[in-house]
């Protein structure tokens, strides 16, 4: 379902398809759920305020979306994303990538990271991409309670008030090292559904 109604000379995109239930567990050994430490055994770490984000993906019956693949993406403490275009920027933190992935058995996850900086009017956020059996790809962004910049963030402002609340992780405490812990529930379908984002318009709609 990749077609758009605007004729272009672009190549037709291969269809996305579900990851299915059997994504190889061994493949996520290369990935990690602690973005604050770039090199194990060295003292280097990411700049910024450490946080822990705990989340749960729930299906329409309130069950955990077990066996899914989750990917995380965020800016560094300066609010800068690390891409090939920014690699040479003085604002890049050499000890922070901002990308990782995780295969969840239960539908839950726990990510230790730093809170991203605010730049270009954005509030601190993490982009979460879910691949799972039964769906192709679901993308959303998670924000943090008590951030003043939430009031002016363009993604939050694009949503009705009740939907904004669904994307704001709640501060629930801190761990033994005084790292604040935030919780979020992401509801895939049905009552209380979390908003997910698209990168192109509904078929048939034209500006």
């Amino acid at each position: 379902m990749n077609d758009t109604i605007n004729p272009t000379n672009r190549l037709p995109l291969t269809n996305e398809d579900t990851v299915g239930p059997y994504y190889p567990i061994s493949y996520d050994h290369d990935d990690g759920m602690d973005l604050t430490k770039s090199t194990i055994g060295q003292q280097f770490g990411a700049k910024g305020d450490k946080i822990i984000l705990r989340g749960r993906y729930l299906d329409k019956d309130g069950n955990g979306a077990h066996g899914a693949l989750i990917e995380f993406w965020q800016a560094n403490a300066q609010g800068v994303f690390r891409t090939e275009d920014t690699e040479a920027s003085p604002e890049i933190d050499p000890h922070f990538d901002g990308y990782t992935r995780h295969r969840t058995v239960t539908g839950g996850f726990q990510l230790k990271t730093i809170k991203s900086g605010t730049q270009l009017g954005r509030a601190p956020n993490i982009t979460l991409t879910l691949f799972s059996d039964g769906i192709s790809r679901l993308v959303t962004q998670v924000f943090f309670e008590n951030e003043v910049s939430n009031e002016t963030d363009p993604v939050l402002l694009s949503l009705p008030q009740d939907k904004r609340e669904k994307l704001i992780a709640r501060l629930v405490g801190e761990d033994d090292d005084n790292v604040p812990i935030y919780d979020i529930e992401i509801i895939l379908a049905g009552k209380g559904e979390t908003p997910f984002f698209d990168d192109f318009l509904a078929l048939g709609w034209r500006d």
Binding site: A65, G134, I135, L159, G190, P195, F197
Partner: peptide, 14 residues
């Protein structure tokens, strides 16, 4: 699984 996990509402434009 598709029935359990597919959002029912429109996706949101970024």
């Amino acid at each position: 699984t598709s029935n359990e996990r597919t959002p029912r509402e429109n996706l949101r434009i970024i």
